[in-house]
Amino acid sequence: MDSHDLDLDHDSVYDGLLGGDASQWAFGTDFEDPLAGVDTTIPAGVDGAVLAAYCLMLGDDALVYAHRLSEWTSNAPDLEDDIALANISLDLLGQARLLLARAAAADPSVVPVLPDGSPVPPEDALAFFRDESAFRNVRYVEAPNGDFGVTIARLLLFSTHRLALLQRLAASVDPVLAAIAAKGVKEVTYHRDYAGRWFVTLARGTEESRRRLVAGLATVWPMYAELTRCSDVEARAAEQAFGVDPATVGDEVDAVVEHVLATAGIERPDVPASGTGPLGRTGRHSEAMGRLLAEMQVVARAHPLGKW
């Protein structure tokens, strides 16, 4: 062991303090590229700019919702649900990294330009250095968590919708997007079951838990319509066979939600959809988004060179 190089010894707690190991830095600690070695060639018949814009939509939904759900960490009703919501958030964050990396590979011009020497990888640049109007997530995912009843109602509709989308996207003509979706299907299946079980449990629990769930459902229901509205980008993505028109999963989502409502003994809310047009998909967000981004991005923006 005389020739053993301590700088290369990963087991040493002092490793990296001398600058030999990049893993001390805020950026570049993980895979520099979550798609390392993956063939990101754009398939024939696919417009790279549209593919990037579409992946930003799917990725931003996951990223922003992951951030919202992470706010439950240390605040959930009990330890198991604290951990469950953190896990769901982590799965979505992983999906976001892959989707944002896919967007950056499909059209590098979507990635914000950072100072020379910045080690920030493209998916982090997209997450932390875009302004609010450049985010393409639906407003549905940026709304404040509310109480546990609101959170469960929101997660049920979101995960049911996303699972239906990802199942179809697993057949995307873009093999990268197809692989990311196929992976996500396995994860979101657990998310939907979690939300569905809690939905039924709260509905059949106490008068108070049922009251809160019904109120939560009424809160998220009008906003849900935004997920099923087809933006121009989604329409073109569907035309080019790498994306899905979100309106086409409406019936499937409806059937699942109907089943959960029936099991829970809860009436379908009689409230109209709010807003018109694609809203969040065109970068027009609600007041809550600014505060969410301020918290999510403040540290990264203060240190664009990624060293602290």
């Binding site: 895979f31 979550p34 798609l35 390392a36 070695g37 993956v38 892959l98 093999p175 990268v176 197809a178 692989a179 990311i180 196929a182 992976k183 396995k186």
Partner: peptide
């Protein structure tokens, strides 16, 4: 040493 990621088939 290069470490590559394989996404498909999913684990």
């Amino acid at each position: 040493v290069d470490v590559k990621v394989s996404l498909s088939p999913a684990w």
